[in-house]
């Protein structure tokens, strides 16, 4: 269990402001735009950065001032940071070697974790020859082999192309029984993996809770970040906007997703986002109908 209390940190251009949350053995996704300071949060929990204020408690123990090597956290940075002078096997085994685990046991564990993450065939490879997805799996294996008290993932799929991304997501789904803290800017990842979701903007955790907060944002900032249309004091998901025949709106932009299109419609003084299967082009006039919206405060 991880408990973060009023954590604050200023590092380079990034800031954490009074961040507090708690996760059990569950998959928690912290969602936020790039540059919001998500990596700073992860680095504080890993012990790489020392917080200016606040407390970090892992399994009941205050780890705020412990060095990284005494925390038992699994850390997978955005660029994977594999040891370039060791092969895949030695990368994965490194943590066990430090703990002076005997050779047979190391061998058994490395093979077990490699099988779990489908990288058994890569064990003798030089890490410089691996693809992005393969590197990610090796980095995961290297962290997981030590049975960490928490797994920290910093934008684990941001450098991967879409197909590899999906397979990594399905790999991540298999991780059970330990808390996972995964920071990302990708909404799909949050929806697919998150049991708990946090929304992190400008160094602040402005929403935290179960998946519902993605569907029912409680304030304007969250709603805007999640792509809701803000009309008056209501947040309306793009899926809740129906495009029909009419004259009150003008299409100003179209993104083509194949079977459907995302359209941006100028409507009164708002720009409304909506999905449609109609074949619309920029400049077309359409009518809009809103299904239920969520009332938001402020």
């Amino acid at each position: 269990m991880l408990k973060v209390n009023n954590l604050s940190k200023i590092w380079k251009d990034f800031k954490l402001k009074n961040v507090s949350f708690k996760i059990d053995k569950e998959y928690c996704v912290i969602l936020g735009p790039s540059g919001a300071g998500k990596s700073v949060l992860i680095k504080c929990i890993a012990g790489i950065l020392k917080p200016d204020a606040g407390k970090i408690i892992l399994n009941g123990k205050d780890i705020t001032n412990l060095p990284p090597e005494k925390r038992n956290v699994g850390y997978v940075p955005q660029n994977y940071a594999l040891f370039p002078n060791k092969n895949v096997y030695k990368n994965i085994a490194y943590g066990l070697l430090i703990k002076k685990v005997n050779k047979l046991e190391i061998d058994r564990k490395v093979k077990e974790i490699a099988e779990f993450l489908n990288i058994s065939h890569l064990l003798n490879r030089d890490v410089k020859t691996l693809s992005g997805g393969e590197q990610q799996r090796v980095a995961l294996a290297r962290a997981l082999i030590l049975n960490p008290s928490i797994l920290l993932l910093d934008e684990p799929t941001s450098a991967l192309d879409i197909k590899i991304k999906e397979s990594i997501i399905s790999e991540l789904k298999k991780i059970k029984d330990i808390p996972v803290l995964h920071v990302t800017h990708d909404l799909t990842e949050a929806r697919t993996l998150g049991e708990k979701i946090g929304i992190f903007i400008d160094g602040e955790l402005i929403a935290f809770g179960n998946k519902d907060i993605l569907k029912k944002p409680n304030n304007k900032k969250v709603a805007e970040f999640l792509g809701f249309n803000i009309v008056g004091n209501k947040a309306i998901a793009p899926e809740e906007v129906i495009i029909k025949d009419g004259d009150e709106g003008e299409v100003i932009n179209v993104v083509d997703y194949g079977r459907y299109k995302k359209v941006f419609v100028k409507y009164n003084c708002y720009i409304i986002k909506a999905f449609t299967e109609r074949d619309l082009n920029i400049g077309d006039r359409v009518g809009l109908e809103f299904r239920e919206g969520i009332k938001i405060i402020s």
Partner: peptide, 10 residues
Amino acid sequence: EIEYVSRTLG
């Protein structure tokens, strides 16, 4: 980051 990871590995 390579040094950081090494630290978290113990």
